[in-house]
Structures are given as structure tokens and as C-alpha cells.
């Protein structure tokens, strides 16, 4: 309940924040703090400095960039959920955010903070994978774009460099007959995903699946696409049987977490079930 001492910095620009990061190797960025502060209270994490980036102008907010929607890293869950643009173009986001943590967490927790933290049981990594998001990061050597497929590297590990800051998430707007859904089996205590499955399914004029992105979180050490499942869908009409066959492949090649609530075997099973449910819902929505 009582964190260790640390220095607190409140930079007013991204470059200042990067400079502070470079000067304080043990520092952590502080945004909503809803992953970091609980860890600090249990002294599982004791950074020597916190760099509060929530007051840096331009890091927060949602904008329409034509074929993409761009979300600033320090935008809170609540702001994303309530955005009319998001609700209209990326309804999977409000659907997933609605089952993240609780109201208070959603009020302060930030999109960028969650993604950069890469908790294996966080919801949004799977959603971002399914949406094909791109992450903008700024570091001492400038700016770069990281495709979501390269972002989640391992348990609590992303492609971000230690002195890089995630600044924006750009999400392509879905085209054509696209449906999307997030289905979650929540841990009853923590609310985190035991298994969360996100599916974005696009149907061609023939009613067959022309594109599908499916990802799971909670099940393994980091959120990951289920490409075997996606391949089994593309070109097929999304019948119950096709979805069932495709979702059976969702656990292939994965390493599953195991904890006091759910074993690896059970998680593998839930992965198949929830991937199936997410695809079915997404396909149904695509059909309109």
C-alpha cells in the first residue's frame, strides 16, 4: 500500500520526456497509472523516477484521419468509449473497453499505457491485433511506426525501446461488409481476460469471408494473431461448421498460461470456444 520513494517529473513535451527517460534509466512513464501504481503499492515495481506524460499537449485525443482513426496514447478508455467516431467506425473498441477493469479504471486508464505495458491478460492487445493497428513511437532518434504484428514481443515486453514513447495508435477504418466482435472470459477476481478473443471479419459480395483477423489475449504469454484460424475462414462462407472448424485451429502452436484459476489445458479449450464465438458474432454483424 506504500510505494517506495521516487522522483516525479512532469514534462511538457515529448522531447523533454525522452530526455528525462534517457537521464533516468530506472524511470517509468506514468500515464493513467492503473497498471503501474498497483505494482508500486505492492513494491513489485520500485522505479526511481516517474515521468508523468499526461499533461503533454497533443498526446491525448481522437481524430479522424481519412481512412484511419488516430488515438493519442494518453487518451483514456472512457474517452475512447464515448467517442462518437469510434462508436461508428470501430465498435469493437467500446465493446472491449466496456469489459476492461471497471468504471474507475476506465476513467483514468489510458490506451497507450495499457498497450505499452503489454499485460498478457489485457484486452486491447487482442483488439489492436485484430484491427491491424499501427503504433507511432518517438525516441531520441526520432519517430517510427511499428505495425501491431511486431509490437507484442513477450510477457510485458513490446517492441518499444527503453527510451521510446508510444504517442499514437492509428487504426484503419474497416472497409466494405466488415463485422467485429470481442468475446471475453473474465477472471472473476481481477476482471482480466482468462481468454479474450477479437475478430474482425470482412465479407465479399459473394458472402464469403474475404479477410479475417483473429487474435487472442490472456491465453498465452502475450496477445497473438491466430493465423491458422484466419486462413481457415478466408474464402469460405461463415457457416456454423466453418467457424467451428476454424476455431478448432485457434489453439494450434500456442503456449498457454496456467494459474490457480485456469490451467493451460482449460485455457486452450476456452481459446477455441471464445474465438468461435467472436468470429460468429463478427460474421453475423458483417452480414448486417
Amino acid at each position: 500500500m506504500y510505494p517506495s520513494t521516487f522522483e516525479y517529473y512532469r514534462p511538457s513535451s515529448v522531447s523533454e520526456a525522452i530526455q528525462l527517460l534517457s537521464q533516468n534509466p530506472d524511470a517509468k512513464l506514468l500515464a493513467g497509472g492503473h497498471s503501474l501504481i498497483p505494482a508500486m503499492k505492492l513494491r513489485l515495481s520500485s522505479p526511481t523516477a516517474l515521468i508523468d506524460i499526461t499533461r503533454i499537449p497533443g498526446l491525448s485525443g481522437i481524430r479522424d484521419a481519412g481512412d484511419r482513426v488516430v488515438i493519442g496514447a494518453t487518451t483514456t478508455y472512457d474517452e475512447v468509449m464515448r467517442s462518437e467516431l469510434i462508436q461508428r467506425t470501430l465498435p469493437i473498441l467500446p465493446e472491449a473497453i466496456d469489459v476492461i477493469g471497471d468504471l474507475q479504471v476506465r476513467n483514468l486508464g489510458t490506451i497507450g499505457g495499457s498497450l505499452a505495458h503489454a499485460d498478457p491478460a489485457a484486452d486491447l492487445p487482442a483488439v489492436m491485433l485484430a484491427l491491424g493497428a499501427e503504433f507511432k513511437a518517438i525516441g531520441p532518434n526520432g519517430e517510427r511506426t511499428i505495425p501491431v504484428d511486431q509490437f507484442f514481443v513477450d510477457l510485458f515486453t513490446t517492441a518499444l525501446q527503453p527510451n521510446e514513447i508510444l504517442t499514437e495508435i492509428a487504426i484503419p477504418k474497416p472497409a466494405g461488409r466488415t463485422g467485429m466482435a470481442y468475446e471475453k472470459f473474465a477472471n472473476p477476481a481481477s476482471g482480466y481476460a482468462v481468454v479474450g478473443a477479437a475478430a474482425v471479419v470482412t465479407l465479399g459480395n459473394d458472402g464469403r469471408v474475404s479477410a479475417a483477423r483473429v487474435a487472442v489475449t490472456g491465453a498465452g504469454p502475450y496477445a497473438a494473431r491466430r493465423t491458422e484460424t484466419e486462413q481457415a475462414l478466408v474464402g469460405q462462407a461463415p457457416t456454423t461448421e466453418v467457424i467451428k472448424q476454424a476455431s478448432q485451429r485457434a489453439s494450434e502452436g500456442m503456449t498457454f498460461n496456467s494459474d490457480v484459476f485456469a490451467s493451460d489445458e482449460y485455457r486452450a479449450h476456452l481459446t477455441r470456444v471464445f474465438v468461435g464465438r467472436a468470429i460468429a458474432k463478427a460474421a453475423q454483424r458483417a452480414q448486417g
Partner: peptide, 11 residues
């Protein structure tokens, strides 16, 4: 609504 145990006073 926020959980005041998960906010530093400086924030």
C-alpha cells in the same frame, strides 16, 4: 469516479 488509492497526490 476514480480510485484515490491508485492516483498519486501529485497527479
Amino acid at each position: 469516479a476514480v480510485k484515490s488509492c491508485t492516483v498519486f497526490a501529485v497527479q
